[in-house]
């Protein structure tokens, strides 16, 4: 309901803009929006280790910066490792009394390439070591958008990218999207959640929960990319909602191993609603869409049954 009364919204969230306007993201970028919401929820006592990617490039062309919080850019594959080092460094300085004792969250940030491909090893190490006050956020726009839309292991089945071109002999991306949240859950960490910038309150609530869980926590944020998905730039929010409403990207959280669905969707919309308007899926035939629908329904049912078994 409150969504309808825009005037109240600023009162419900942190007013500080720690990811400021003037950065160079494309028009309609939902990833920049996601970063903004995550930072609103995180507050000032954080250190961000940001892997190479869209958000790093658009936000830090020297001598300019969009970040109002401590921030370091690190190699593509090492956001998890550097964030681990930051957490360890802060811990030892507090233990030795060199800096005052307080909660400073070490935040690793990366895109889907930096998280699900090249940075998976470092992230897995960080989650396995159970760093306290450690949060990793993956901003998933489903391809290497920064370098010109190359496929990643997070690119959904059937999507055309420049290195998974669609044509007579190729459907485009021919493997299913890697289930990164499930990989994080397999590390037995206190908090894992999926989120989307089309659901800002849900996103911010999950960030706060992630921090309160003590860490390590993992957040997988679907970030609609109009440029790479080939959609009009004013429709990013709509496609984020469609991804959730069709079950393509279900919103859920896993707290201490317990699954809970967080979006209220009485009945899923057909995936066609989500796929049809996107240029990257325009080549899909009815048969292809049926295959995707079956897979989405199957995966969604799995989550529902986990939710039911965990919540009576």
């Amino acid at each position: 309901m409150i969504d309808k009364y825009a005037v109240f919204v600023p009162n419900l969230t942190n007013r500080a803009e720690n990811f400021t306007s003037g950065h160079r993201a494309c028009q309609g970028c939902a990833e920049a929006l996601a970063v903004r919401h995550v930072l609103k929820a995180l507050g000032h006592d954080i250190v961000i280790s940001n892997a190479t990617g869209c958000m790093e490039i658009v936000s830090s062309p020297l001598p300019l910066t969009a970040w109002n919080v401590p921030w370091i850019h690190v190699t593509f594959e090492n956001a998890g490792a550097v964030a681990s080092g930051v957490a360890a460094g802060l811990k030892v300085l507090m233990r030795k009394g060199k800096i005052p004792e307080k909660r400073i969250v070490s935040v690793g940030m990366g895109g889907d390439g930096a998280t699900t491909d090249i940075g998976l090893q470092a992230l897995s190490g960080a989650l396995e070591r159970m760093h306290k006050d450690f949060l990793y956020v993956c901003f998933d726009n489903e391809a290497y958008m920064n370098t010109g839309i190359q496929r990643s292991s997070s690119t959904p089945y059937g999507a055309a990218t420049t290195t998974s071109p669609a044509g007579k002999d190729s459907i485009g991306q021919h493997t299913w999207k890697k289930n990164m949240a499930a990989i994080a859950v397999a590390h037995d960490i206190p908090y894992v959640a999926t989120a989307c910038s089309s659901y800002p309150f849900d996103l911010q609530a999950k960030v706060i929960k992630a921090v309160e869980s003590g860490g390590p926590a993992y957040l997988h944020v679907l970030s609609v990319c109009p440029t790479g998905w080939r959609i009009p730039s004013h429709l990013a929010i709509k496609y984020g909602r469609l991804a959730v409403e069709t079950g393509v990207f279900p919103l859920y959280e896993v707290q201490d191993g317990k699954y809970r669905m967080t979006a209220d969707i009485p009945k899923l919309r057909p995936v066609r609603d989500y796929l049809s308007g996107q240029g990257r899926f325009r080549h899909l035939t009815d048969t292809d869409i049926d295959i995707i629908q079956k897979r989405v329904t199957k995966e969604y049912d799995k989550l529902i049954s986990l939710h039911k078994s965990n919540n009576g």
Binding site: G113, Y144, T147, G148, Q150, T162, T163, P165
Partner: peptide, 13 residues
């Protein structure tokens, strides 16, 4: 992927 050689993998794909 890495700029400025992306056209090469794209061409090869």
């Amino acid at each position: 992927p890495i700029t400025p050689q992306n056209q090469l993998p794209e061409y090869m794909s």
